[in-house]
Design a protein around this nucleic acid. Structure first.
Length: 485
RNA sequence: CGUGUGUUGGUGAAGCGGAUAACACAUCGCCCUUUCAAGGCGAGAUCCACGGGUUCAAAUCCCGUACACACGACCA
């Protein structure tokens, strides 16, 4: 049987990194199987928490990342609808809940919130377990149905066997076994007739033929309860892959509340979707070899559930930046240029060869956002201090700079044609002729034409991009500044 | 309070009873280089939370303690 996995977010208007990683892993697990199917299901049973436009964020994020789902609300599929609020309309959850009552896996409950809170307070006060003990459990079905017929509000709760244990084998955490006595009889159908997540999730996973349930490990302790439902119905249980959390630091998970980066934020900060995916795939998972850079397809090939770790991983923006830089530098120039053109244009309005600028900036920018600030010396020749010529390592001072620059000026004034090859050839001859080190000539030249000590590209590349006229203009101005000092 | 899960350098991690405890990021140093970046090389865990135990041998197995996280919602 082929693998079917699902990503089942609730639309909160925010795609956080931990969620995206769960989606990625679910996708990888499905796609590892050539016949595998990856499904998107929207879990919006909490009508009180609906956020407008939230599902669009989910669709957009998935699309940007290339996590293409085979079935889902927008693309359809054989086991739809794929939005839980739509499924509710058919009464399907209520039907299954009633069936569950018949097979002894659930019961009606008429307790209101006050009585539950009162019991909880009582249990807390006596220092005992705060588990809710439902008095309605002992009601006969006839009695319960009569009260419902009389219009009394009700919920349906799961019935947990009083004794015994329930266990399962998680693909990540191994064998988990708990005593039934600690399992609470949770609500399956709320008084508004909607199913809770717990119930809808089980029903839908079964109805949609999910073979591998991939989700956060916060559900680890609820899983035995879900299995009890599968068993009551006599359904085959799925494999479980519970994922350890993605943390902000040792104590906190990444969250919207903490203002932590969402996928959208990372895009706005100039990261590439490929790099983000690449990086988060490795938060809690490691490949069998030491490969670091993976395309999505490569991840599909390399991914293996057995290598998912059990402990939470801290999201490190510094490492993400490094991975992003590797992606950026690894692109061919044409692609890089297309991607960064707008960013470069935003900083460089003048008539320069943008592609040449892209070539030099590619070697050093780790994110798209870093690009513009690096290019601030093109349109305007910044004012600068002659102190910039002082560089211990290069053994330069304003004095040797002046000497070098004058020689450069003479050389460049007569240089024809003006292109990178000729500039390189002639400029590299100069230091020897002057009896200086390369750096004593080329470093001052860079400062003289850019007004900065550090720039993308060196003096030669930049002189080429500036063109003869602009280069000489800047050079003369800098020489004058040195002479007047 | 109960239950579950976890704890290897600053971070991600490999490791699954016998190794000098991989690798990557970050940090520091050196080399190269027209600066910076990139690239190359090298350094850092007196030892794998702590305490016991099993074993000829433990980061690796067992028990306990501490700490962290999660669940114990008519939220997902």
């Amino acid at each position: 049987m082929s693998i079917r996995t699902r990503f089942a977010p609730s639309p909160t208007g925010y795609m956080h990194i931990g969620n995206l990683r769960t989606a990625l892993w679910a996708y990888l697990i499905a796609k590892k199987d050539p016949e595998g199917v990856f499904i998107l299901r929207i879990e919006d049973t909490d009508q009180g928490r609906l956020v407008e436009g939230a599902t669009d964020i989910i669709y957009n994020t998935m699309k940007e990342c290339g996590l293409k789902h085979d079935e889902g609300p927008d693309v359809g599929g054989p086991v739809g609808p794929y939005v839980q609020s739509e499924r509710v309309k058919s009464g399907l959850y209520m039907d299954y809940a009633k069936k569950l009552i018949k097979c002894g896996g659930a019961h009606y409950c008429f307790c209101n919130e006050e009585t539950i809170a009162a019991q909880r307070a009582e249990h807390e006060a006596s220092g005992q377990d705060i588990k809710f003990i439902d008095p309605c459990k002992n009601l006969s079905l006839e009695e319960a149905e009569a009260r419902i017929a009389a219009g009394e509000p009700f919920v349906i709760r799961q019935t947990i066997p009083a004794e015994g244990t329930t266990s399962f084998d998680d693909e990540v955490f191994g064998h988990i076994e708990v005593d039934n006595s600690i399992l609470d009889e949770q609500v399956l159908i709320k008084s508004d007739g909607f199913p809770t997540y717990n119930f809808a999730n089980v029903i839908d996973d079964h109805l949609m033929g999910i073979t591998d349930v991939v989700r956060g490990m916060e559900y680890l302790s609820s899983t035995p309860k879900y299995n009890l439902i599968y068993d009551a119905f006599g359904w085959e249980k799925p494999r479980y892959i519970h994922c350890p959390p993605v943390m902000k630091d040792e104590h906190n998970k990444l969250s919207k509340r903490n203002g932590d980066a969402s996928f959208q934020d990372l895009m706005a900060k100039g990261y590439l979707p490929e790099a983000v995916l690449n990086y988060i795939a490795m938060l809690g998972w490691s490949p069998e070899n030491n490969q670091e850079i993976f395309t999505l397809d490569e991840l599909v090939q390399a991914f293996n559930v057995k290598h998912i770790g059990q402990n939470g991983a801290i999201f490190d923006p510094v490492k993400l930046t490094s991975v992003n830089g590797l992606w950026l530098r690894g692109m061919d120039l044409d692609h890089y240029y297309e991607l960064t053109k707008e960013y470069i244009r935003s900083a460089v309005k003048g008539d320069f060869d943008l592609k040449k600028i892209a070539a030099v900036v590619q070697q050093r920018a780790n994110t798209l956002q870093e690009i513009a600030p690096m290019l601030d010396f093109f349109d305007v020749f910044p004012e600068y201090s002659n102190d910039l010529y002082i560089n211990k390592k290069m053994k330069t001072t304003p004095e040797v700079a002046l000497e070098s620059l004058k020689a450069c000026l003479t050389l460049l004034e007569g240089l024809e044609p003006w292109n990178a090859e000729v500039l390189h050839e002639k400029l590299m001859e100069l230091p020897a002729q002057l009896g200086k080190k390369n750096g004593q000539v080329l470093f001052p030249l860079r400062v003289a034409i850019t007004g900065k000590q550090s720039t993308p590209g060196g003096a030669i590349e930049l002189a080429d991009i500036f063109g003869k006229e602009e280069t000489l203009r800047r050079l003369r101005s800098s020489i004058a500044q040195l002479e007047n000092a």
